[in-house]
Every structure is written in C-alpha cells, then in structure tokens.
Design a protein around this nucleic acid. Structure first.
Lengths: 252, 252
DNA sequence: AGCAGAGTTAATGCATGCAATATAGCGAAA
DNA sequence: TTTCGCTATATTGCATGCATTAACTCTGCT
C-alpha cells in the first residue's frame, strides 16, 4: 500500500504489527513502545517508526499528546459510522459509474463478477472464499468505472479499517445465517446495481449501493448476539464491548 | 495535524515543504531528493523522511516504484473530482447533522456563524478574511453536529488538498466576481442548510450541501478564464494546464 | 551507428548512538 | 493525609554513518 518491495523492513513491520493488532495481542488503549516492539517484529526503530505512522493513517493507532502511540479502540458507534461512510462512498462510486462509464471492457468486468457469483450460488456447497474474491472484484470494477481517483483514495482510506471492508462480515455470515438469506439479498442488490449502472440511472445506483452497504450493518447487529460470529469479524478485538458502547465508563 | 509541539523538526519540515510545494518551487513530476531538500529546509533526513510521508498522505507527493517521491500534478478532472467529493462528504455531514443533532449549544455555533456572515454582508466594505474565518466555522460546526468521527477523518483527508478546501476559491472570487453575486448565493445556501438541519430535513440538507460545494466548481470554471484569479487559488502551481484537454475526463 | 554490458555515481533504506523530555516514583512539607 | 516538587528512569526524537540498489554513462562490440 505504501511501498512495494523497496522497503522490506518497513513492509515487514507494517504487516507484522497490523496482524498483531488485529489479533488483539495488544489491549486497546495501551501504549505501544518502540523499544519493546522492535525486537518483537525483528526490525529496527527507524522503519518501525515509519510503520507506526502508516498504521496511524490507517486508523489502528492514535498519537499521544506527549508523543508515542496507543492502540485505538472502536465503539459500536464507530463501526456503524464506518459502514455508513463506506456506503456513502460506494454509493457515489455507483452514481459516477452510471453517469460516466464508457469503456465496455471495464463494464464487462462488472458483469463477469456478478455472473461468477451467480455461478457460486448454483453450486451445491457454497464457496465462501471464492465469493469474497468475486465480491471484491465487483466492488473494484465499480470503482474503476467511476473514474475518480479522489474517490478511490477516500474509499481506500475508509476501507482500511478491517471491519469496514466490503467483505468484512461475509465470514460472520457463515455463522449467523446458515441458509445464506442475506447473501441472496446481497447478490440481488449486485444485479440491481449492475442494471442501474447499465441504464445510467445514477440516483438509483447510488441508493442501491448505500443500502447494499447497510447489509453489513444488519450483519453486525446479528453478529453481536453470537460470540463466535463476532470473533470471525476481522479486528473485533479492538471493539470496546466490555463497558458498553456508550461513552465514559467510570474507570475505578 | 500529525504531531503537536513534540516534533519541532518534523513540523518544521512539513510546513516548510508544503509551503514550497504550494508556491510551485518544484515543478510537478520532478523528483524531490532528500539530500537536496534537507539543507533547504534546515532539517535532518530522519524527520524529513517522515515529513515526506505526511505530504504523501496529504496527496501532494507520490511515491516512485523505485523509491523516493515526486511532486504530484493535478489535472482539471482531479480538481472537479476533489470538489465533488467534498460535496459528497459535506452533504453527508449535513444529513447526519439534520438526523442526529441534539445539543442546542453546538447548534448555536452554526446559527452564530451564519449570523456573523450576514453581518459581514451588511458592512460597507466586505471583509474577505473575516468571511473565510466564519465560513470555516460554519463548516466545522456542521461537521461537529454530524457526530461522526469517521466522516470527520474522511473530510479532513479530502480537504487536505489545498484547492479542495471550503474556502479555496473565496480569494479568487474577489477577482472574478466583483459584485459578489456568488457569495450572496453561498450565503443563501448557508441559511437554507441551517434551516434544513433545524427542521431535520436530512435529504434536503444533503442536497443543499452538495450543491453548495458545486459553487466552487462554478468559481473554478470562471477562474480558468482569468489568470490572476487562478493564481489566487492555493496550489494552482500544481495544476497541469499546459497539455490541456484534461486526460481521462474528455477521453471518450 | 546502435545496442549491450559493466563500472561508477548518487540516492534511498536501515541501524545505532545521543540528547531532550515526559512520566513515574519517592520524599518532604503543609 | 494530601499535595507539591525533585529525581531518576525510560521513551521518544533526531542526527549521522553505512550498505544496498537503482540509474546513468561510457566504452566496446556487433
């Protein structure tokens, strides 16, 4: 995301630290010290410092007033906002795609992603991994059709938070929705978005894509009642559930 | 933005380099080398490296595949997209504000900003600097009422580009619109947004705020015909005007 | 003359040492 | 007992030296 292969140490530090954060190895709110992290990640302090900056941009860390970083914690309100924000941006991408798309080849990528997901539903056993891949292809194709680098940047930042990604709750769905009703609805929305884009119905495409993102909200509410489903959500360890989602719990 | 006073060298490097970039001291597309920049900014390479990362995140620089950074150039299509994106996000902020606002004191900040701008219009000579201040207060109050940290982050990133800020074209207006017709329209929109938020008309507030941002688009089109007006736009030195017919927008 | 390869140069990436500062702990005084 | 201040420690911030690698050039060969 930041550098390709030219910064092995930086890349290593970012990936390793991100994995540890998402795994919940560091409690939210705790200060992460460079000197303790450096040996853990096997890198020196210089690339580690850069990695901390990257993770801060992604939103997983926050800077302290006095310097240094703490693991950020997220409330349920943050999750809902992140999902809604993704819906806003993907809705705009859908609108732009409807208004602007011109290249039939790019459009065909959207069609083929929908067709591929249709084929997955026809199969006997549902292949979740393949679905996630095709789902991301769909969203990528939509963003490509929008032809808006600025929007791409904003969406990339918004979906950098793990639980805000388009397929964040797909794995949870396998737990809470055995019959895959929600996935059927999602696929129907994919088809409708495709149709709206094809017909250049910008407003309709935007509304559909916004509502499509809100499926993740429904999954979130359902997953909250099911611990094993919630554990399947990436980054769930950073969600503050102990002292309620509402503000200041009196720390005794 | 990144650190407060704990990183004097980093802060110095970010501000100095940003100023030089916006002033057009480095031609867009040119590689910025650390070793040449370090003595120019009076900082060492370590904080300079961090500063380059910050400016990259802001969008003023791009990383090269082989490492290093280049000054980013912007097409007119990029400007239009950036303004439209700001409209999308501020529209959402207005909708959230309408749907969620509860604290009368925060709401009053919105009211007072509008009133202050009204007062500025009543004066004999129009105080542009004061207008910019109050305009930013209006937008800040709206964002505050939205109560969405995620949206705030996204908007902060979107408006980090200088020409995408809410008051980027106000100075240009003093050149191209001596009678301030556009500012009168802008102020009317401020009032309407305030009214919609007060009445909890979310959809209306969103549409109004989107259209409000598009005033900047109109100013952009007007400023393009007036060189001195365009020079008043911050960061105009980074806009690619030589090869004209902005690439992918009209590419069909 | 053009292309390829090797050598050289210059820029980035990384590591470590040093200095400045915030924090925590302890003690003394009110 | 509480609070203020001092000290000690630990952590961040910065600078510089070194290694690696990419780019450029020059030369020799086809």
């Amino acid at each position: 995301m930041t550098d390709d292969a030219r910064s092995p140490q930086l890349l290593r530090a970012v990936m390793a630290l991100r994995a540890k954060l998402l795994a919940g190895e560091f409690p939210p709110g705790e200060r992460v010290a460079e000197l303790t992290l450096a040996p853990l990640l096997g890198v020196s302090r210089t690339p580690l410092r850069l990695a901390l900056g990257v993770l801060e941009h992604e939103g997983l860390l926050r800077t302290l007033p006095g310097g240094g970083f703490v693991v950020r914690d997220f409330t349920l309100a943050d999750l809902r906002d992140a999902i809604e924000l993704r819906g806003i941006l993907e809705g705009s991408a859908a609108r732009f795609a409807a208004e602007r798309w011109s290249n039939p080849r790019s459009f065909n990528r959207l069609v083929s992603a929908v067709a591929a997901m249709d084929a997955l539903y026809a199969a006997d056993s549902f292949d979740f991994a393949a679905y996630v891949t095709e789902n991301e292809r769909f969203h990528a194709a939509l963003l490509d059709l929008a032809q808006s680098p600025m929007l791409s940047r904003a969406l990339a930042q918004a979906t950098a938070l793990p639980f805000a990604s388009p397929s964040a709750f797909v794995w949870a769905q396998s737990e809470i929705d055995k019959r895959n009703h929600i996935l059927l609805i999602a696929q129907d929305q994919h088809r409708l978005i495709l149709e709206a884009v094809q017909n250049r119905e910008g407003t309709r495409a935007e509304a559909l894509a916004r509502e499509h993102a809100r499926l993740a909200l429904r999954n979130l509410e359902a997953a909250l009642k099911n611990r094993t489903a919630m554990d399947a959500v990436p980054g769930s360890a950073l969600i503050r559930t102990d002292s309620e989602d509402d503000d200041h719990a009196l720390r005794a």
